[in-house]
């Protein structure tokens, strides 16, 4: 069985985002990058699936600048077998362009299961995974909290929907799934794992070769900070007075209850 985990490097969740003076993007200097948390669930599930299916191969794929290799090495240290780095040094790509490139690489490798994060926490678009599935004309199940192989050709997947409801799908392989928090607990890379990762193969491809002939569908413009919230009133007095005053303000001033 061939298993893929797609991963993206994103700014650490603590990062304070600064916007370029011409509003065309964000300042990328001084950003500490991490593996997108939802992609970590994808990597963990790929490794678990590989472990349960001896003879399988788990491949970590990332598109990005040179630093994206760090994300691949992290995945290899966790236990993925090999990596594919699609080096991209050009400008911003929209979700469709990214999906086009990744779909080409996935298509060439005949993966049976493709694990993705449900979204990347930088642009929060949540489009790339579904777009890849559409380009490859394979089924998808997004926002999953459980993944099981029923047999070598069928997966049973639980998708989380609104208000605590769940949908359980049965699907033939190949399948693309979008991983949600709660699916698993990503392992930490062990020291031997980190040592071993250094010798695992990472194939390098160029995005320019794979982007040939594709077109972007949207452009992000006019980056801006959200309106700053001002600190409001702190209510004084004894707890009983504070509670009474807050209930009154919510009704009469804020008019929200």
């Amino acid at each position: 069985m061939k298993i893929a985990a797609l991963l993206k490097q994103v700014p650490d969740t603590e990062t304070k985002i600064r916007i370029k003076a011409d509003a065309s993007g964000i300042e990328e200097s001084d950003i500490k990058y991490i593996v997108n948390p939802y992609c970590e669930f994808a990597v963990e599930e790929a490794i678990k699936t590989r472990e349960k299916n001896p003879g399988s191969e788990a491949v970590a794929i990332s598109l990005g600048p040179d630093r994206a290799v760090e994300a691949i090495r992290t995945a290899l240290a966790m236990g993925m077998d090999k990596g594919i780095h699609i080096q991209h040094t050009g400008g911003w790509l929209d979700s469709f362009s990214v999906a086009t490139v990744l779909a080409k690489v996935i298509g060439q490798n005949n993966f049976d299961v493709i694990f993705c994060g449900k979204q990347a926490i930088d642009e929060d678009a949540g489009q790339t995974a579904q777009m890849i599935a559409e380009i490859l004309n394979i089924p998808q199940v997004m926002v999953i909290e459980k993944f099981e192989l029923k047999d070598a050709k069928t997966a049973v997947v639980t998708r989380r929907v609104s208000g605590g409801a769940k949908e359980i799908y049965e699907t033939p392989l190949p399948i693309l799934v979008g991983c949600e928090k709660g699916l698993n607990t990503p392992r930490y890379a062990s020291l031997p794992g980190i040592m071993k990762a250094k010798t695992k193969p990472v194939q390098k491809l160029l995005s320019t070769d794979l982007l040939a002939g594709s077109q972007s569908l949207v452009q992000f413009v006019n980056y801006q900070l959200p309106p700053e919230r001002k600190a409001g009133k702190k209510l004084d007095g004894e707890p009983a007075q504070q509670a009474k005053e807050l209930a009154r303000l919510l009704r009469e001033e804020a008019k929200v209850i």
């Binding site: 409001g232 702190k234 504070q242 509670a243 009474k244 209930a247 804020a254």
Partner: peptide, 26 residues
Amino acid sequence: FSKADYGIVGDLFTVIPLLTDELKKV
């Protein structure tokens, strides 16, 4: 508190039950 429109500095286990009663009245 720097983002809140209304803030109460206090123990939630004291404040919440009182607030629940006040909200009931409102």
